[in-house]
Design a binder for these strands. Structure first.
Length: 923
RNA sequence: GCGGAUGUGGCGGAAUUGGUAGACGCGCUAGAUUUAGGAUCUAGUUCCUUCGGGAGUGUGGGUUCGAGUCCCUUCAUCCGCACCA
């Protein structure tokens, strides 16, 4: 922490250090002879290079084909290979999975641990626009750099299984899956996707002719092509998914504001799988937060749809409500400005007011409209609806707090029991009748609510909720009873029915981009859409001169006429789809391709899929909690329904690694100060130019704050094993934690000590092991194993430190113990472990050695040092043999001089002895 | 507002089912060694203390022989969602 100048200082320091240690041997410890230095020094760079070459040459981490072995599939979220290379967040997750993979392999599992590249995406395309370099070239370079960096960390991936989403051999099958989505419909009754050929065409559709049939089928397909109001980013000239638009109405990628635009787009009907996607969450071992975020995103709510007659109109107004039981309290209705029936419901007198209101609402962005702090606004349409439960006339208003995109775009307003309606009714002096007698001890509040002067959204008993005219009476009932009775009544009178609503919308699945998977689709001049045959896949991207998107929202692909225009054998002309798939497409199924990455006959072999799936452990950042994981689960479920995969869920256990932050600095006013402009003096921090005192905070690493730590620097300064160990020792894997520069030194020292002690064979001896070492060794084997299973790497490392400290203190160790310990260290610091393993005379890689077995009997104690508490406070300790008589224990403990001092020889009130734990004396 | 999580020394963090709070590491202090130290080794390091002890895991309360852990209350921070009817 002394150094505030994290990146610059750090780099300087490591460079000096490296030069000192490696490049200038004459500067080394002068008291030793050169040869002594040679033998004692931990030359991590030589060691790491040696073993990385060995692993590469021997394909040590190649996944075997022995399907009789138990399998373990451990997966990392594959990276987008950006131009700036790895940051320290990548090795965190990768090291964790690497440790698990190595540990499982040593425990006899057939381990699948692959890596690949999610390589389609905007930066390479933008670079192409600027420089004319084809995105595939940029991508290739970046992948090569990422691969080099990852290999330099000693991560044991099976590189023969590397996948790349931009490889035609890969995206062929992404296109193939798209055709399956297109040719699937969702059978709501069976809650299952089924081939489109199995779709029954109703008789009236059949008689209506070919076009009607086509339209009917198109409406059922999981993938469809339609006009969609989409978010358009004028700066990127791209359509964005809802998910890519930030809360402030800006594009996630570029930060510029987005606008609305109507375009023909490919959409996927993910809401049909809402129930399945919800159900599946109950059966996977995922962080509760991620499950909740997905549930929230799907946004299921149950209630009823209710039809309201509208006076002077043959149309009825349908609303969705989660509280049909509050119908008696509905005193007005509100429809969204975009509601299709608005015009019909607007009377002549109100027309100009309504039109100007709607025009204004249209100008507001969705963001402004959903700003809670905003005053409610709205206009009366002039029409009245009839409340079905009591035949009261209630006014219909238009207001922008009702959103067209949710429910039916219209609501019944119950001002006394809904805060938004209450605000609106208050603002426009509409009546606020109370129909729920609040269940509250606050008498004043209850009075206010009963008078309609306050809003109550909690539980209560119904009042004023009966009508002689309609026969419905729910007075005195509870919430559940009221809802049930009202729904039944609505149903009987054909006025409504129970309904479920979801927030999740159709997934906008096309982008106006070059660098993505082309859709295997042809739009024919006669309006027909057809998909390419499997044999015609992959459909490659055309070579282009220019990558600029068209200004009207068309992708650059439209510029390639040769590629674009097609003619069928009958002379019919058509045009290829010019949109490409979003980046999510490739990442939706990559975990499936790893199991059979070179298969050119099918996306993967059924037998291999059957063996490897599901993924046993999936580790990655929480930023993919919703989108990637939801999309990918959706595709998986469709593939499952079609019999292409054998499991309903793809990922059994998910784990989110916490983000690694860094120290940053800000002034009193909150302005951020780049780390290279900060100086530390006596524990305080100052701006080096202005002298102003600045505060140290913890923030995300960013270029502008100059606090980015580059893994390459750590590797060159301390070695890959130190980087691995440090990232694991930093804290719990799922915690958000700041990078503390000095911490690397701690693990580096530890590795130095391990090297110094274990690489020096003079510390070994033959014969019986020291009892203390033996006990610690077996405790270490046990604890590290359990910790790896639980992903508690930080405590595993501290246990290894404890053992090493003990061994060094004792000064010697048996070869057998050393062999066992080094195998425990192996998954964490594989290079150093290999080095010592070979010094121990082993010929095969330690990665293929068996995990040592601990002996529980060695860990058994025959006596225990009891802490003795008097009235709950620790007073002394006493060693007692286990299995001692209760009376003898009491006698011995009470005879202890400290005990006598406190008890004065009197018999205590209570004497509590918890075997192998504690003794407590109550006086 | 709703949902999820987290609060422990100077710092990162330990502490299965309630059972010795502060493991391990950083930093710091002292000593050894060294021309030197950003090297290595040894000892110490929660705070207060009249050296008997006392206090202590964000706050306040409760259960218990015993609470970081269980219950209630309240505060703070982080993440996600948000006029979702």
């Amino acid at each position: 922490m002394r150094s505030s100048l994290v990146s610059v200082e750090f780099r300087k320091k490591t460079r000096i250090w490296q030069a000192f240690i490696v490049k200038n041997p004459q500067n080394r410890l002068i008291s030793h002879t050169e040869s002594e230095v040679e033998s004692m020094e931990y030359k991590f760079d030589e060691i790491e290079k040696r073993w990385q070459d060995y692993w590469e040459e021997h394909k040590t981490f190649k996944t075997g084909d022995d399907y009789s072995l138990p399998k373990f599939y451990v997966l990392d979220m594959f990276p987008y290979p950006s131009g700036s290379g790895l940051h320290v967040g990548h090795p965190e997750g990768y090291t964790a999975t690497d440790i698990v993979a190595r540990y499982k392999r040593m425990n006899g599992f057939n381990v699948l641990h692959p890596m690949g590249w999610d390589a389609f995406g905007l930066p390479a395309e933008q670079y192409a626009i600027e420089t004319g370099t084809h995105p595939s070239v940029t991508t290739q370079n970046n992948c090569d750099n990422f691969r080099r960096q990852i290999k330099s960390l000693g991560l044991g991936y099976d590189w023969d299984r590397e996948v790349n989403t931009t490889d035609p051999g890969y995206f062929k099958w992404t296109q193939w899956i798209f055709t399956r989505l297109y040719n699937t419909w969702f059978d709501g009754t069976a809650q299952k996707g089924r081939p489109i050929e199995e779709l029954e065409i109703p008789r009236e559709i059949q008689t209506a002719g070919k076009d009607a049939i086509k339209e009917f089928i198109a409406e059922k397909r999981l993938a469809y092509y339609d006009d969609a109001q989409v978010w358009w980013c004028p700066s990127c000239k791209i359509v964005c998914a809802n998910e890519e638009v930030l809360n402030d109405g800006n594009h996630e990628k570029c930060g510029n504001p987005v606008e609305r635009k109507n375009l023909k787009q490919w959409m996927l009907r993910i809401p049909l799988y809402a129930e399945r996607l919800l159900d599946g969450l109950d059966h996977v071992d995922w962080p509760e937060g991620v499950k909740d975020m997905q549930r929230n995103w799907i946004g299921r709510s149950t209630g009823a749809e209710v039809d309201f007659r509208v006076e002077g109109s043959h149309e009825t107004l349908r609303v969705f409500t989660t509280r049909p039981d509050t119908l008696f309290g509905a005193t007005y209705m509100v429809i969204a400005p975009e509601h299709p029936l608005l015009q019909q419901f607007t009377t002549l007198e109100q027309k100009s007011k309504v039109e100007s209101y709607v025009a204004k609402a249209g100008l507001k962005s969705e963001v402004d409209r959903s700003d809670l702090s905003r005053e409610k606004s709205g206009v009366f349409t002039g029409s009245f609806a009839i409340n079905p439960v009591n035949n009261t006339k209630i006014p219909i208003w238009v207001a922008d707090y009702v959103l067209m995109g949710y429910g039916t775009g219209a609501i019944m307003a119950v001002p006394c029991h809904d805060t938004r309606d209450f605000e609106f009714a208050t603002a426009f002096s509409l009546s606020i009748p109370c129909i729920l007698d609040p269940e509250t001890d606050d008498k004043d509040l209850r009075e206010e609510v009963l008078k309609g002067k306050a809003c109550w959204t909690g539980d209560g008993r119904y009042v004023n909720s009966a009508s002689d005219q309609t026969g419905l009476d729910i007075n005195g009932l509870s919430k559940e009873e009221g809802i049930a009775k009202t729904i039944k009544w609505l149903h009987q009178h054909d006025l409504g029915a129970e309904a479920i609503n979801y927030k999740i919308r159709d997934w906008l699945f096309s982008r106006q981009r070059y660098w993505g998977e082309p859709f295997p689709v042809i739009h024919w001049d006669d309006g027909e859409i057809s998909l390419l045959e499997d044999a015609e896949l992959p459909l490659l991207l055309p070579q282009l001169e220019k990558y600029e998107p068209g200004s009207h929202g068309e992708s650059p692909l439209a510029n390639s006429t040769e590629w674009l225009n097609v003619t069928d054998p009958n002379g019919r002309k058509g045009r290829r789809e010019t949109n490409t798939m979003p980046q999510w497409a490739g990442s939706c199924w990559y975990y499936l391709r790893y199991i059979d990455p070179k298969n050119d006959k099918e996306p993967f072999s059924r037998a291999k899929e059957n063996y490897w799936l599901p993924v046993d452990l999936y580790v990655g950042g929480a930023e993919h909690a919703v989108l990637h994981l939801l999309y990918s689960r959706f595709w998986h479920k469709v593939l499952f329904d079609l019999g292409i995969v054998s499991t309903d869920e793809p990922y059994t256990k998910l784990f989110n690694q916490g983000m690694i932050l860094a120290f940053a600095y800000e002034t009193e006013a909150g302005a951020k100060v780049p780390s290279d402009l900060v100086e530390e003096k006596d524990g305080a921090y100052y701006h080096s130019k202005t002298g102003e005192e600045v505060k140290q905070i913890v923030a995300k690493m960013s270029k502008s704050l100059k606090n980015v730590v580059n893994p390459d620097d750590v590797v060159s300064g301390f070695g890959a094993d130190s980087l691995r160990l440090y990232e694991m020792f930093l804290g719990p894997l799922d915690a958000t934690k700041p990078w503390v520069e000095n911490g690397v030194k701690g693990v580096y020292n530890f590795l130095n000590r391990v090297h110094k002690f274990f690489a020096d064979t003079s510390h070994y001896y033959e014969g019986d092991e020291d009892q203390e070492i033996l006990k610690s060794l077996h405790a270490t084997i046990k604890k590290v194993g359990a910790d790896v299973d639980a992903l508690h790497f930080n405590t595993a490392i501290s246990q290894m430190m404890i053992f090493t400290n003990l061994a060094i203190k004792k000064g010697q160790i048996t070869r057998e113990s050393a062999e066992a310990f080094i195998r425990v260290l192996g998954p964490f610091a594989p290079h150093l472990a290999e080095e010592i393993w070979s010094i121990l005379g082993q010929k095969e890689s330690i990665a293929l050695a068996a995990w040592p077995v601990y002996d529980e009997s060695i860990l058994q104690e025959d006596s225990h040092e009891y802490p003795v508490m008097i009235n709950g406070k620790l007073r002394f300790k006493i060693v007692l043999p286990l299995g001692m008589d209760e009376a003898d224990i009491k006698g011995q403990v009470l005879a202890h001089e400290t005990a006598l001092k406190w008890t004065q020889g009197n018999n205590p009130k209570r004497f509590i002895h918890v075997p192998k734990k504690i003794i407590n004396i109550v006086i």
